[in-house]
Design a protein around this nucleic acid. Structure first.
Length: 799
RNA sequence: GCCGAGGUGGCGGAACUGGCAGACGCGUAUGCCUUAGGAGCAUAUGCCGUAAGGUGUGAGGGUUCAAAUCCCUCCCUCGGCACCA
């Protein structure tokens, strides 16, 4: 009986489909388990072998949990708005909607081909008006709660995609999507006030089981720092505020620096105004990359004739404009303490500015800047205080005079939320000349994306929607007068901010989802996806979720309780798989040649789940060999009635190891255990009986469901193996009577002996000392000490 | 520079709470089978050594009867952040 993967896999996939085997029951009384994959963008290339790795892992978990009696929710959907479909549409003239549909059906075919156990009745698509209706609804809630506002501000602009971008979408000064260098552009933008949730987003990290790496990335991105805001007087008439975390170094402040964009520069009387304006202009025209690459070389211009007073000692100091000070952090102005800050030190050296040391410490090295905390000196009444005390005392001292205030600053910026592109959710806002901004009434949602012939981005800062006059021109819902629709669309991240919630109740027409259902299923128990979304999707969706929690829409503070990252599958050449490099391996090819079960088992066996590993065709063959070996063995044993006690012990041991490792999200070692098991059982085929065969099949079935279903029926079972309970090992059957004991002399392994289990130390020692082979090492020497670990090891020290 | 993860055979990787390092797979070698093999099966396989034995988990030191595992110093690789005051 040869295993024919094509026939068998088709047979069972049809069976599962016909029997609705993976439907989640809403009325189940069993405890819930929500296991979710990051839903894909339905690209035209379909899946490559890297994509299923995460899907297979969650599929295994879902199958085990079902067998363990959980009511499992395991859905899948499509994150289908975004640039690729739109760009393709521009090139070919085929509407993005049609392309999306085509791509979805291809990827769905691939997912079914791999045997993934999704509940397809819950499928969602972010471009479906019945879905984005609620994305727009959430936007309106954000707007009503003052968390969405429109503002003119210099934003990151991608000249190739012709749209504004969020900070999170600019990587190394380049557009995250297309790699083009971004520029700055002043456009009126919709912005979401994610900064209002900075502290909540930080605190929430303590309550969730996420990889440390992702938590750290989010913490750094939010970048909370505590310090003081201090007012310096300028020219006796004006004031400028600076933010500092090191108010303890205030006596060492020898100049003040304004960012080029600082508005005060225009207001001040400056003797060398022309020179200053020229510098500012040059700084503004620098691209993000130029600015980054010039970090070492700090430039600036003195504001001549401007007098600044250090509030702590009344000392007059100079003022500069320099682009090493960022306008969008803190107050856009900085007090410079060259003795205790590297940047200020570099700048002061270049422009020969005064350097006054005010902090001393043990680690201070000659000729280097001392940036650590230490003890204050040159600081009058505050001398001999520690930095920490100094901060408190100096801060409070200035606070009493109204010159300083405690302040918390964040690196996190508000989320630039509008895109000047076609293929996204329309923002449901109407601009009325009388009433100002008016929301589209909820009962008019969804505000459908109009069908257009031309999707080309305009590059003018307006979206293509602006050209559709019969869509743009509307009556104001408030006053009935002439008004215009907002023509910007939402970014591609909008739909993915809340999709995990719509799976719970995806056909609900009345509300975003039923509250009771939400309470029952949330939070997501296990969320699996790539780490590249650390400060994009994973931050944005936490923000929306926390907002929805605050307005009573959801019942949990966090959306995803446990997160695990997938390690990439690299091409055999060690590079990332990509169409342009021509190194993509399609699952279609692997499944055709070896079958879905081989693909699944190999992807799990490759190595640790969260680690990047190269694809190796030989490895696929190895796993395939193992599966046919397992098939042959079980087929040849199918009529065996009972097992030997030894085989029973082996099977229960296997059971324990597989269960233990799966609970730790380890998938490579269980496969290895199965291989080991079948290697040993091949010599004991006669002792491998029905009950044990069935137990092994139940354990293996989450990994290779088709093969196991088939063998299950070969054994004469009429029902699907999916209905079987996950087996629990019986530890009493594993207990062995004899064990191998390691015998060491002076810590070196010299012999191994078989003894009765639980033999006491004295007896083992007696056996060991009479052992012929060990005499060589012990004879004539004095035994100093004997260490004994029960059932494991005895170490005789003679040295 | 800062943060995070990691460094084990020719390769991917195992190793519980400190207790046989190298499970499992790939590759390689030899043999069998075959008209043939980039198929299948069997055996071997960390390194040095004919062997006894020695040696070995990035480097060096330490703790311990015993260290891949714990501690200290350093090096390297990958990922992220990066003028954030």
């Amino acid at each position: 009986m040869e295993y024919n993967h094509k026939e068998v896999e088709k047979k069972w996939q049809d069976y599962w489909e016909k029997n609705n085997s993976y439907l989640t029951k809403e009325d189940s009384k069993n405890p819930k388990f929500y296991v979710l994959d990051m839903f894909p963008y339905p690209s035209g290339e379909g899946l490559h072998v890297g994509h299923p790795k995460g899907y297979v892992a969650t599929d295994i978990i879902a199958r085990v949990k079902r067998a363990q009696g959980f009511n499992v929710l395991h859905p899948m959907g499509w994150d289908a708005f975004g640039l690729p479909a739109e760009n393709y549409a521009i090139k070919t003239g085929v509407h993005p909607e049609i392309i999306t549909e085509k791509n979805v059906s291809n990827i769905k075919r691939q997912m079914k081909m791999i045997g993934l156990s999704y509940d397809w009745s819950r499928e969602i698509n972010t471009t479906d008006p019945e879905y984005y209706k609620w994305t727009q609804w959430i936007f309106l809630k954000l707007y009503e709660n003052g968390l969405a506002y429109k503002k003119l501000l210099p934003i990151n602009w991608c000249p190739s995609c012709k749209t504004g971008l969020a900070n999170e979408e600019v990587v190394d000064g380049k557009c995250e999507r297309c790699g083009t260098e971004t520029t700055k552009k002043d456009i009126e933008q919709w912005v979401l006030k994610i900064t209002a949730y900075a502290d909540k987003l930080l605190e929430g990290l303590n309550d969730i089981d996420w990889p440390e790496k992702i938590k750290e990335m989010q913490k750094n991105w939010i970048g909370r720092s505590e310090g003081w805001e201090i007012k310096f007087s300028i020219n006796d008439t004006k004031e400028v505020s600076v933010f500092t975390t090191r108010i303890d170094t205030l006596f060492g402040c020898t100049y003040l620096v304004l960012a080029p964009e600082h508005p005060l520069v225009n207001e001040l009387q400056i003797e060398n105004k022309e020179e200053v304006l020229e510098y500012i202009n040059k700084a503004k025209n620098k691209s993000e990359r130029e600015r980054i690459s010039e970090v070492k070389d700090k430039t600036g211009v003195e504001l001549k004739g401007v007098k600044v007073i250090n509030p702590i000692n009344g000392k007059e100091i100079k003022a500069y404009v320099a682009d090493y000070v960022l306008f969008n952090y803190g107050t856009g102005a900085v007090m410079a303490v060259p003795a205790h800050d590297e940047r200020d030190f570099d700048f002061a050296n270049k422009y020969e500015l005064e350097i006054i040391e005010v902090i001393k410490g043990e680690n201070k090295k000659e000729g280097e800047v001392f940036i650590e905390d230490g003890v204050l000196f040159n600081s009058f009444d505050f001398d001999n205080l520690t930095s920490e005390e100094g901060r408190e005392k100096i801060g409070e001292y200035l606070k009493k005079q109204g010159k300083a205030e405690k302040k918390v600053n964040y690196k996190l910026r508000d989320w630039v939320f509008s895109r000047q592109r076609y293929w996204g959710e329309p923002i449901p806002i109407i601009h009325c000349s009388k009433c100002g901004m008016v929301t589209v009434p909820e009962n008019e949602l969804p505000l459908k994306l109009p069908y257009v012939e031309k999707y080309q981005p305009t590059g003018t800062g307006e979206s293509p929607l602006a050209a559709i006059s019969d869509w743009v021109n509307v009556k104001c819902p408030k006053c009935g007068g002439d008004a215009k629709r907002e023509t910007n669309t939402m970014p591609q991240w909008a739909g993915s901010c809340w999709y995990y919630l719509r799976f719970l109740d995806n056909k609900n027409k009345e509300e975003i989802f039923n509250k009771e259902i939400e309470k029952k299923w949330m939070p997501v128990d296990l969320y699996v996806g790539g780490a590249e979304h650390a400060v994009l999707h994973l931050l944005y969706s936490r923000f929306w979720h926390k907002f929805m929690y605050d307005i009573g829409v959801v019942s949990t503070k966090e959306p995803f309780y446990k997160l695990r990252n997938i390690g990439l599958i690299l091409a055999p050449d060690g590079q990332k798989m990509s169409k342009s490099k021509g190194n993509v391996i399609s699952p279609d090819v692997i499944v055709d040649e070896f079958g879905a079960d081989t693909l699944r088992a190999y992807e799990m066996f490759m190595g640790p789940f969260d680690q990047a590993i190269q694809w190796n065709e030989q490895g696929v063959k190895g796993v395939n060999r193992f599966l046919s070996k397992a098939w042959d063995i079980i087929v040849s044993c199918k009529d065996n009635k009972t097992s030997s006690t030894e085989v029973i012990a082996m099977v229960h041991k296997l059971n324990k190891k597989v269960s233990d490792d799966l609970s730790k999200m380890k998938f490579n070692t269980p496969i290895a255990f199965f291989m080991e098991f079948f290697n040993s059982i091949s010599e004991k085929k006669d002792e491998f009986g029905k009950d044990e065969i069935e137990r092994v099949l139940k354990l293996l079935s989450p990994f290779t469901p088709h093969l196991c279903e088939e063998l299950w029926s070969v054994l004469g079972n009429k029902n699907s193996i999916l209905l079987e309970k996950w087996p629990e090992e019986d530890l009493s059957l594993i207990k062995e009577e004899k064990v191998m004991m390691i015998v060491q002399v002076d810590g070196k392994v010299r012999e191994r002996i078989e003894i009765e289990i639980d033999t006491p130390k004295e007896e083992v020692q007696k056996i060991v000392l009479s052992n012929e082979r060990l005499k060589k090492w012990i004879e004539g020497k004095e035994i100093k000490e004997v260490f004994f670990v029960e059932n494991k090891l005895i170490n005789i020290c003679v040295a």
